[in-house]
């Protein structure tokens, strides 16, 4: 589904990603772990198309197409979804209005008819249950004055509405209390199918108790230096990142 080859990216002339290689197949969950500043969020941003990052080398192929050629909205329409580490507050735009615009623009790009008010509401009601989010929150301005947990739930709610093929969760667990974390993880697990793939970018192993990864990759200084199964995540939780740094330095 996704093939990242020798990906280099920089921001303001500073190279952050220094040759990432990663292949993701449908149905898989990949966790990307690493200390702060290792490039985890940059990788997520580059995949979603954030414009301040410049890709200097390498390629990203998604479902056979060159992902890097697409504008952020085109990627979303092709089924790529980024759950933001810091969801943006947008005053004056309600979540409902925003999602209706988004869902219908995505549908339109696929040659489908836009949803009318009734079917949209029905879809919304159905997806709201997944993340236990209530109506009053959705009629408020997007993320404005939401608690950290509400913002993250809103991200997963949007994911449920857009039904992406490739979801990238950027530090979705950071700052979440256990209850909210369980709700978010349940939502993600319910949305998972044999055709979809998930990238979980996280600093903490905790989330991986709830969203169980098939593969764990350690990102260090812009490169994937170690890959393994979920046992690797546990080892990292236990021993920290220093042993990998040493191991990498030795090589």
């Amino acid at each position: 589904m996704l093939e990242i080859k020798n990906l280099h990216a920089s921001v303001e002339g500073k190279e952050i990603l220094k040759g990432i290689n990663l292949t993701i197949n449908p149905g898989e969950v990949h966790a990307i772990m690493g200390p702060n500043g290792s490039g985890k969020s940059t990788l997520a941003s580059v995949l979603a198309g954030r414009e301040e990052f410049e890709v200097t080398e390498g390629s990203v192929t998604y479902k056979g197409i060159d992902l890097l050629e697409l504008a952020p909205e085109e990627r979303a329409r092709e089924g790529v979804f980024l759950a933001f580490q810091y969801p943006v507050e947008i005053p004056g735009v309600t979540t409902t209005n925003f999602l209706k615009t988004a869902v219908n623009q995505v549908r339109e790009s696929r040659g489908e008819k836009p949803l009318d008010a009734v079917s949209f509401l029905k879809l919304m009601k159905e997806k709201m249950k997944l993340v236990d989010i209530n109506q009053s929150l959705l009629s408020r301005s997007l993320n404005e004055g939401f608690s950290g947990g509400e913002k993250k739930r809103n991200e997963i709610f949007q994911m449920a509405m857009l039904e992406p093929a490739l979801s990238i969760l950027d530090e979705t667990d950071s700052g979440l209390d256990i209850d909210a974390l369980k709700i978010v993880a349940d939502g993600v697990n319910t949305l998972k199918t044999k055709e979809t793939a998930t990238i979980v970018v996280t600093h903490y192993q905790r989330l991986l108790n709830y969203i169980v990864p098939d593969f764990v990759h350690v990102l260090l200084n812009g490169r994937i230096v170690k890959s393994g199964t979920k046992a690797l995540a546990l080892e990292l939780e236990d021993k920290g990142y220093d042993w990998i740094k040493e191991e990498t330095a030795a090589v």
Binding site: A71, P72, E73, R75, R77, I90, P91, G92, L99, T101
Partner: peptide, 26 residues
């Protein structure tokens, strides 16, 4: 706010439309 525009675009909303949504709200 560029970050807000990117946020809207990342959900499939075209750039021009994202700007319009925000300005209209303003």
């Amino acid at each position: 706010d560029e970050e807000a525009i990117f946020y809207l675009r990342s959900r499939g909303i075209a750039k021009q439309h994202a700007k319009a949504l925000m300005l209209n709200a303003f």
